[in-house]
Nucleic acid binder design. Structure first.
Lengths: 410, 410
DNA sequence: AATCTATGTTGCGTAGAACAACAAAATATC
DNA sequence: GATATTTTGTTGTTCTACGCAACATAGATT
């Protein structure tokens, strides 16, 4: 019913849409002159000027001081344009990850630069939702001076839970939550009136990993977060594909093998627990860590290599299965287990080749190296993305979602 | 690079977008008054009136003659509105399926009603692309009087091939094609200048099966075409998800079992060939047909039921695997083998339940009953959908896709 | 120095939506 | 049955924001 193409454009919306487009272009390309912007947006130079004028008045855009006047190959004839850039600290966004063992918060600015982060240990399962939300909010706000607060334009939460697009948690097994409206709780707990979004942690991670400037990769990216559990997210043309229930990309439960005894799913085959379980059987150390394991693999210790080999095979099968359905052209691996991939690149590729028909295009595989704040960063990015879209509160958006003049006159 | 949100709106575009929105609303809801339309589109009544006036002048919309004046529950206070409707035969679209054994053509009108169809036997593998295109075009046009031709507003082709979104066929194993620009060939063969789109047959089928009026199901639909081969398509919020290479939803090659000997993929387990191969071993008939098999299953003949049981299990596993990745909430089965599903509903459901974790929402499964023209119909629908969008040629669209003022200035 | 080229700005024209006012066509109310 | 009420469709006006053209500007080119 909320068919975007069914809502009409008015005059206000034109300008809104064009201002948003200008902001997005500046975010994507970094620096542009008014004339360049006009070309990108297919606008007249004069219109571009007007739009920039109003964005400048709002303090979102400024003329860049030419610190590096001689960019290589920038010798063009004609009057040089005045470079424009976003004012990074004009506004900011907060992202929080409520994990099982820790809470992380991230503050990003209009240029999606990370301004500050906080991480705090946390015992998720033993704490109520309300208390968790309270701690998350206070941790996120603790390093923000009161005077700056009003420049906050969005608050994102990520957590290991299955939730709908409104932030209603259906089930969070690791935290013991069920049917809690997380987004609403956070909204109420915040001393600000800003847009709040909640999202599954793997989905948020996926957004964060793909939502960089000039990273508007048009295509399909499958993002895999490999820790004890295996999470996943799918990004289509730069925006998250949630699926019907927010479960799209959660490939941890794919059945990989039904060879001998019980069926084994991907999580059971490539998760951290499994690797460490196997590794403990062979390691001579008292308390072997994943780091020890990686070192052993690097040293080509047969027992460790054998475990890694199993891992590579299962990962390859999982990726091939997933790509047969969503036809991704890019795969990004994240989470601590991803560190194993660079050691096993060739083996994974070989298994993919063996499983795949030759006619199928093979996606590129890369490792994401965001720190522990990846998911919180992604949550913040979701609000950055929202700000640079037509739903932005800045334009009295949101209304479009709330009104819904549903009149079912059968 | 073709980021839609990066292109700005001008004055012309406003009207375009609003006219398109009006046409879409009328298509979706059938009949609306100007005031109702204004509410749906969030426009002022007067603007709605202007838009309707210009669409009426173009012959696309008319005031409906109140043949059924008393719609139930239609007693509302106030002046009753004048109902508006699309003029079905204002324009039409053609769709062609170039299959392996037959060519089917469909003509649909602005209301997506099927006006006429043609089916002709065809020996795909033995015929060149050019000849196939020529036959397809002549079959599609044969029943269209010359005077009507100019009202054609689009031509769609579907064929069992992997192709990109521009209609360039990378590979069509069943027809022996490789690297042919099918859409261009059709464009050149047509005696009209109309938009031409080409799409994989399963994808086209999927569009046709979901693109009904008032069928703008917002959600994720997985469509499965089961014949000798297994094709598939994914529809997200009413529009086709092609994936990076047009292969999204092609779940025929999912690995279902690696139990004893060689791996078996879904196609090898639930395809028509497999069923009939098994059935021939047990049937007492000389030339058993799939119809015989269905009858035997219906009669609970143990040998047939056993084959069907295997089929149900493999299908269930395939669907569960697919839904774990794309999180579909609706599955539609098509193709001749789909007729087996109604007999096995309970078994499939049981297997899904057994494979699935309880927390996972189970999608609805329905059988599509389009005839043999489903894929051609879908191809025609693609152009209907395009006409009711901003890329419509009617508004000098397409330019947006051709210009591309790419200026990579490092 | 003169010319060329591209940029940024300004004033004007215009398309098209919002707004307000009004007549019309029905129901609701007394 | 007359009047009030409600909703619709239309008309004229206002306003917003873009396109266009003209011009001054700032550099490169000759």
């Amino acid at each position: 019913m909320n068919d975007p193409a069914l809502t009409a454009s008015s005059h206000r919306r034109i300008r809104q849409s064009n201002e948003v487009a200008a902001l997005r272009a500046l975010h994507q390309f970094g620096r542009l002159s008014r004339a360049e912007l006009a070309r990108k947006l297919r606008l007249n130079r004069s219109s571009s000027g007007h739009i920039i004028a109003s964005l400048t008045a709002d303090g979102l855009v400024r003329e860049a001081i030419e610190d590096s006047p001689e960019q290589p190959g920038y010798a063009r004839v004609g009057r040089p344009g005045i470079m424009l850039e976003l004012v990074p600290d004009a506004i900011f966004f907060l992202g929080v990850e409520i994990g099982v063992e820790h809470i992380s918060t991230v503050e990003i600015d209009l240029g999606t630069n990370i301004v500050s982060t906080n991480v705090e240990p946390f015992d998720g399962p033993s704490i109520s939702v309300e208390a968790a939300v309270a701690r998350a909010v206070s941790l996120a706000l603790q390093s923000i001076p009161a005077s700056k607060l009003e420049r906050c334009e969005g608050f994102g939460v990520s957590t290991p839970a299955q939730m709908d697009k409104h932030g209603l948690v259906r089930l969070a097994p690791l935290l013991g939550w069920r049917n809690v409206h997380l987004a609403d709780l956070v909204r109420d707990a915040l001393p600000l009136r800003v847009p709040v979004l909640a999202e599954n942690d793997a989905n948020a991670f996926a957004i964060g990993a793909t939502y960089g400037r000039s990273e508007v990769h048009s295509g399909v990216t499958l993002f895999l977060v490999m820790e004890s559990g295996i999470g996943g997210g799918i990004i289509i043309d730069g925006s998250l594909f949630r699926g019907a229930n927010g479960l799209a990309g959660e490939i941890g439960h794919l059945i990989i093998s039904d060879t001998p005894g019980p069926r084994r799913n991907l999580e059971q085959l490539i998760g951290l627990e499994t690797i460490m379980g196997e590794y403990r059987k062979t390691s001579t150390l008292d308390h072997p860590t994943f780091g020890n394991f990686l070192a052993d693999v690097q040293d080509r210790l047969p027992s460790a290599v054998s475990i890694a080999e199993q891992w590579a095979r299962a990962l390859a099968i999982g990726l091939v299965q997933a790509c047969r359905i969503i036809d991704a052209d890019r795969i990004v691996l994240g989470g601590s287990v991803a560190a194993l991939y660079p050691l096993m690149t060739a083996r994974v590729a070989a298994h993919i080749h063996a499983t795949q028909e030759s006619s199928f295009p093979v996606p590129s595989i890369t490792v994401n190296d965001e720190g522990t704040v990846g998911s919180a960063f992604g949550a913040a990015c979701m609000l950055h993305q929202r700000y640079l879209s037509l739903e932005s509160q800045r334009f009295g958006g949101e209304a479009a979602e709330l009104e819904e003049p549903e009149e079912d006159e059968g």
